[in-house]
Design a protein around this nucleic acid. Structure first.
Lengths: 209, 209
DNA sequence: GTCTATACGAGGATAGAC
DNA sequence: GTCTATCCTCGTATAGAC
């Protein structure tokens, strides 16, 4: 679970503002949510908000920072990969993709953060940069190196590491988006869980046999 | 190319409003664009806009209709599949995914419509419904039936049609999103073209050999 | 169809008292 | 830190003249 302000005062006004903003931005988007609306939910006047954040945009900026920091820790550093793969079979390594997926979608705050980033990425260059670097580029670089190592040690079929990374990860990105949408209307998402599982199984079989 | 009002008066004010709205919504999102801003670009007063659309929301609604109609024609009807596959090899059929992708991203209006739908889908139930039905459900149903037919006739390996549809299409959805993002900053997208091509090639090889 | 004029609530943000 | 009061701009929308 994501702690917004780990080990600080538990429910400061600043945190309440941030939590409320996350709630509202993740449903209506930054532009359609007003400072009035946020502070009304928190139970303070608009002016009081400006003691905690200089502008409305600074709230969004804080949210982006939060997501960036979480995302940075989502995967182990690339230089630890060799050690990880020394004690983990390719099957187990690949199966972790499902755990990562579950860990994200099970965390309500993280789901909201993902939604905000997805909504704002078209309008906001910061969001776009985070999505591109921390998500797309970061994940593919990590996986590419993992597959390269596995191929080099002859633990999987000798296919192109970059293509393997893509074929493994990109379907999961799409499912993630679908998940974020379904959850808005409180629709059932067990099919998506199964889909991720089946995809990883299919993929694992293709590269190991 | 998408014609907004096929064979009507070529550049009516209504069309100019619609085109401008598409331009602006696709960059800043519906909520962050004002009627003032739209009409300023068109060269009329705010009040004049209301002779063409009852409300600002009606502009968005028109945009959704437009996208829905385009999307409906993006794929042949499912009951034509048998005839199509009778004259087309699995290889050629699958290669069409690349043509479809190219046709979409080459059309500037279509790219903007996609962006608008992607931005608004979280906030707007209509957008969400279109994305789910016309895009996700529609495409997968089409492909699933195609693969079912190909499997039944022994033209590809006997794998699960639904999984094949997913493994074929979902990576392309992700690339599409990435494309929409890259193009905002006018970045190069030839890598993505190659990625789609390579994916379809990889996939085709897996199911036919 | 477009314009001017106008309504009027909502928008972000600040000053200054407590 | 929070409040009241206030600023001024922007937001959608309408009425009525041309």
């Amino acid at each position: 679970m994501v702690e917004l302000f780990p080990s600080k005062e538990p429910t400061s006004t600043k945190q309440k503002i941030l939590e409320t903003a996350i709630d509202l931005f993740s449903v209506n988007g930054y532009s359609a949510v007003s400072v009035r609306e946020i502070t009304k939910h928190v139970g303070i006047k608009e002016s009081a908000m400006y003691n905690h954040f200089k502008t409305k945009d600074e709230i969004l900026d804080t949210i982006f920072d939060l997501f960036r920091n979480i995302q940075k820790r989502a995967l182990p550093p690339i230089d630890k990969l060799e050690a990880i793969l020394a004690v983990q079979s390719p099957q187990d390594f690949l199966a972790q993709g499902f755990e990562n997926f579950r860990r994200t979608v099970e965390d309500p705050v993280l789901v909201k953060l993902w939604r905000i980033l997805n909504i704002e990425q078209y309008r906001d260059a910061r969001a776009r940069q985070i999505i591109r670097q921390e998500v797309y580029v970061g994940t593919i670089a990590f996986l590419e190196e993992a597959f390269r190592l596995m191929v080099d040690k002859g633990r999987i079929k000798p296919l192109e590491p970059r293509m393997l990374a893509f074929e493994y990860q990109y379907p999961i990105f799409s499912i993630m988006t679908e998940y974020l949408l379904l959850k808005i209307d409180d629709q059932d998402t067990t099919d998506l869980d199964e889909l991720v599982k089946a995809h990883i199984q299919t993929f694992t079989q293709q590269v190991t046999t």
